[in-house]
Design a protein around this nucleic acid. Structure first.
Length: 971
RNA sequence: GGGCGAGUGGCGGAACUGGUAGACGCGCUGGACUUAAAAUCCAGUGACCUUAUACGUCGUGCGGGUUCGAUUCCCGCCUUGCCCACCA
């Protein structure tokens, strides 16, 4: 018997695929391929994120997603779809530029080499890409259109230049991208990153025309739910109001953004971000030095430090005041770095009574705290030492367990008598107030169950009915049940409920601690409808919801504010001071200002340079090439200079999926006809880490192109899925420095591409992170060896199943034919594999194929059936499947074969083993004919000795029969 | 602190809509073949009880609930992963 020589076989088929190009997508399916009278082929555009051709070569993670979509693509083709599965190179980027700086090899050259390596590696895997559509973002024919799209954005006012704070390394003299800042320091030299303001190109992704649609249109697409929520959270829309505050003794005003305009009467001071533009103007002479010092400190803090030091609030008084428009009273203006310059308006009205951060700040700087929201029942005034207070009350039937504890926490149960429209929480609160007059407490937690053995040491009554209850804290120290339980020294005592309530009622109070106690950092009184407005004139008595409405109306009527929205999403910084990126097609003319390069002069090609290091000024290396920078102004012909910034690598990847449709077109980025046929992408796979950047950016570009009428769909990707990471065998991320990288080339060399592909599909759930298992791959190798082995047998004997012990076929009598047991198993395998691939449950699809092979080992099978199996296997292991198919003597290639259809008639209806449950436990398994009806089955079951034994002469109370599943008897 | 997930044998993981938990693979144990090893093939493999079988008991992070029946549904808790994080 010939050994399975995967090296030879895989090379052979890869060559055939290269020559015959069976995976080429048809732009318009030819009528030749269409059976007469049938509609044209359905298109299926499946896409992986095109790789960045790094020097490190292909990663096993690349293989996972490429192989997965290859399975989808190959199956879809066999189902008669016109499949587009393209590949290209996202080749602009920093690593290549750094490599060029180090070695002097031109990025174009380095990219070429890397692409060559990647291509060879990918081809060795036998992925069914349509190589005729290969693209590369660094080729002028490609980036011409990236620049063209930029110009359209510019013309529509969505690209603008603005001074932005960037991370700056004073040693390398270069602006750092966020990804180049590691722990607040420059990735290369370790110097602490500083903030610097540099004029940058920005794309207006937050434009009102787009930002809401980026949220709302998610409803029209089929993305994994986590992807949708992550995008929504990233955009971070909130509804609030913008309110103008007039500066005392001045005509200037400061706008603040708040989500809680209803708390304006509680705004006792204002805080500006240190970078706020009005700080300089309003600061009084007396405060100027202190303010400057604070600003200077803030400037040198990296984002990281600013958040790290967040425990302790810092800030400085400016000496100025604004008038609170609601109270007409002056309130001081402070600056503090807990207010961010680039969110909202960079200024807040501080309401210390109801915002944790404001509260902290007010405490530290002794600013007034004015409460404007109270909880309906809360006005407790505690006094004295309450160390011996009741900690918990647990009700069981008519008894109440009272726990004593230092912390004054209480378990409280509703005693019934809900009032109309009341929540359970409100009922508890009302009851406590009514019954005890004890009204400073907070309900920490709703408890489904409050009684358990933990609280009943005697364990006298274990299986009681349990009550629902609430954890009520009479003191804010314990905020959760766990904290409560962890308190030492609580005593337990049993009381009647009445006694317990009396006990509670015996604690009095004073007024002093009022504000501190009513402020609840946990709920902040900010969660909607919890409180009632007080101390707020015309808002008094309203609940939060109503107060917001009323306040918004009042603001608008008075003309001092309006309801508005705010977003966490910021505009997209689109400039990079690097060489290896698309030049931004703008020139600066002394006379005409910013002038876009005329479209017919595109592409603006990257000039050849010798040095790639950034310049001392922080400009792109392009700035030092006079011959390239100096141009004539396209408008007036006068002297002008080119923009020397380049685009980030998100640019080329924002639209590449369209270029695949028409990669050679030099008139348009893609023809309308082709765009209309192929878009949207039906299935798009990519890493979760791209959810908030690449995926959002490209949706934005697509929407823009849709709006200007050059793209036919408003959402580019119909379905988005994500693969989990492949971790090293040690469970850590694979990295060069750890030395735990698995190289796909080595796996291919040792086991073959089919084994690698199938193993990666089998390794675990596709969307989950899994660790590479060097042993696990052996199992897949054994499986494919077995397939080969049986394939050889079938070739020789036409049928496996001669009772050959060596082959493992023993049960000849089971029948090797289509209508026998194995035929039935094959049908079940078709059903399961088809469904699993559709759901991208590749691991269970492979296990089903394995099970079938085991079954063939038991029962044997004939040639036709073996071929059907090969078709099911082919998406995973295409080379071996084609080879065996050819050896079996079939003329048709597997890729020319239709995906198998299920023939339900061939599924054997076997005897069913019916489990019989008695009192919830499986006690007997009875073999029955499948077509028996319920009454007959019951009769048979009750006759069984075992069942009789369990019945023990008693009559069954109840018999539940679930057809085809089980029979359950209750005695 | 916020958002989204996840917890099942020695390990990776299966399990439809609540219906025999542990498919498939790894590993391990025993056997066959071999001078031997590797490879391959056969058998076994959740824990406990038992000489063994049978009977039985326990078992899907923990504590409860609903149900004839819960990995699945409900309540609470714990642990853990990822992303975001002073967002007013």
């Amino acid at each position: 018997m010939k050994k399975y020589d995967y090296k030879k076989i895989e090379k052979k088929w890869q060559k055939i695929w290269e020559q015959e190009e069976p995976f080429k997508a048809e732009d318009r399916p030819s009528s030749r391929l269409r059976p007469a009278g049938q509609s044209k082929k359905e298109k299926f555009y499946c896409l992986i994120e095109f790789p960045y051709p790094s020097g490190a070569g292909l990663h096993v993670g690349h293989v996972r997603s490429q192989a997965a979509l290859d399975v989808m693509a190959r199956k879809a083709r066999m189902e008669g779809k016109n499949v587009l599965y393209p590949i290209g190179w996202d080749a602009f980027g920093l690593p290549t530029e750094n490599y060029a700086i180090k070695t002097g090899i031109h990025p174009i050259e380095a990219t070429k080499q890397n692409v060559k390596i990647f291509k060879k590696q990918i081809k060795s895997l036998g992925i069914s890409f349509d190589w005729s559509r290969e693209i590369n973002t660094t080729e002028p024919e490609y980036y011409k259109w990236t620049q063209w799209i930029f110009l359209q954005l510019y013309k529509h006012g969505l690209a603008y230049k603005k001074a932005m704070p960037i991370n700056w390394c004073s040693s390398c003299k270069i602006g750092l991208a966020n990804e180049e800042v590691v722990n607040g320091a420059c990735e290369r030299c370790g110097t602490k990153a500083e903030r610097r303001h540099i004029k940058q190109w920005m794309l207006k992704i937050t434009d009102e025309k787009y930002v809401d649609r980026l949220i709302e249109d998610l409803e029209t697409v089929d993305y994994l739910p986590q992807i949708k929520t992550q995008q929504i959270n990233w955009i971070g829309r909130s509804y609030g109001a913008e309110i103008k505050f007039e500066i005392q003794n001045s005509k200037l005003e400061i706008k603040v953004y708040t989500t809680r305009p209803d708390t304006i009467f509680g705004a006792t001071y204002m805080v500006l971000a240190p970078e706020h533009e009005l700080v300089e103007t309003i600061t009084t002479e007396a405060q100027r030095a202190a303010v400057h010092e604070y600003q200077e400190q803030a400037r040198h803090k990296s984002d990281l430090e600013r958040t790290e030091l967040s425990k302790e609030k810092t800030g400085v008084f400016t000496g100025a005041y604004v008038i609170n428009p609601a109270t007409n009273k002056p309130i001081p203006i402070w600056i503090a770095d807990y207010v961010l310059a680039n969110y909202g308006t960079g200024a807040i009205m501080a309401v210390p009574a109801h915002d944790e951060r404001d509260f902290e700040f007010a405490k530290k700087f002794e600013l007034p705290i004015k409460e404007v929201i109270v909880k309906k029942f809360g006005e407790f005034k505690p006094e004295g030492d309450r160390r011996d207070a009741v900690a918990a009350v647990i009700k069981r039937e008519d008894k109440v367990l009272v726990l004593y504890n230092k912390q004054f926490d209480v378990y409280r149960l509703p005693s019934g008598g809900y009032e109309k429209g009341e929540t359970a929480e409100e009922t508890i609160a009302r009851e406590i107030v009514e019954e005890t007059g004890y009204n400073d407490f907070q309900i920490l937690d709703y408890l489904g169950m409050i009684e358990s053995n933990n609280y009943i040491p005697e364990k006298k009554v274990q299986r009681q009915k349990f009550h629902k209850g609430f954890l009520v804290s009479l003191n804010s120290e314990a905020k959760t049940k766990t904290e409560f339980e962890e308190h030492e020294d609580y005593e337990e005592r049993w009381y009647t409920e009445k006694e317990a309530i009396e006990k509670l009622a015996s604690y009095g109070g004073g007024e002093e601690e009022f504000v501190k106690r009513t402020f609840n950092p946990q709920t902040k009184c900010f969660d909607g409808s919890i409180g009632t407005v007080v101390n707020s004139e015309f808002l008094d008595g309203l609940n939060v919801e109503e107060a917001i409405q009323a306040m918004n109306k009042w603001l608008e009527d008075k003309g001092i504010g309006k309801a508005t929205k705010s977003y966490k999403l910021r505009d997209w910084i689109f400039s990079r001071q690097h060489y290896w990126g698309e030049p931004i097609p703008i020139v600066f003319c002394a006379k005409c200002g910013e002038v876009p390069v005329p479209e017919d002069q595109l592409p603006v090609k990257l000039p050849m340079v010798k040095k790639y290091e950034p310049t001392d000024t922080g400009e792109s290396p392009l700035a030092s090439i006079d011959s390239w920078v100096k141009v004539e102004c396209p408008k007036c012909g006068g002297p002008a200079r080119r923009e020397t910034d380049t685009m980030p690598n998100w640019a080329g990847s924002s639209w590449y999926f369209m270029r695949y449709l028409d990669p050679k077109n030099d008139q348009e980025f893609a023809s309308q006809e082709k765009l209309k046929y192929w878009l949207p992408v039906d299935l798009y796979n990519g890493g979760m880490e791209h959810t908030t950047l690449h995926l959002l950016y490209s949706r934005f570009w697509n929407k823009f192109l849709y709006d200007i009428g050059v793209v036919p769909v408003s959402e580019p990707y119909q379905k988005r899925v994500s693969h989990g990471m492949i971790l090293a065998p040690d469970g850590e991320k694979m990295s060069k420095s750890r030395g735990n990288v698995i190289n796909p080339d080595e796996v291919v060399a040792e086991y073959g591409a089919d084994v690698l592909r199938t193993y990666e599909m089998f390794i675990g759930p596709y969307d989950q992170a899994v660790a590479w298992d060097t042993n696990g791959i052996k199992g897949v190798k054994r499986f494919l060896d077995k397939v080969w082995y049986f394939g050889e047998e079938v070739t020789r004997n036409k049928e496996v199943g001669a009772g050959n012990k060596e082959l493992g076929t023993r049960n000849k009598e089971l029948g090797t034919g289509e209508l026998g047991k194995i035929g039935s198993e094959l049908q079940k395998t078709i059903i399961k594999v088809t469904k699993d691939i559709d759901l991208m449950h590749f691991n269970t699809a492979v296990s089903t194929l394995m099970t079938f092979m085991n079954e063939v080992g038991e029962s044997g099978c004939n040639k036709e059936m073996f071929r059907t199996f090969l078709v099911l296997l082919a998406p995973f292991a295409p080379h071996i499947a084609e080879e065996i198919n050819e050896r079996l003597g079939f003329d048709k290639r597997i890729w020319e074969t239709s995906w198998p259809k299920v023939d339900a008639a061939k599924i054997l209806v076997e005897k069913i083993v019916l489990p019989v449950m008695i009192n919830g436990k499986v006690r007997e398994k009875i073999e029955i004919e499948p077509d028996l009806d319920e009454a007959e089955i019951k009769k048979i079951v009750l006759k069984s000795d075992k069942v009789q034994k369990y019945l023990d002469g008693k009559e069954p109370k109840k018999i539940i029969f679930v057809k085809g599943k089980m029979l359950s008897i209750v005695v």
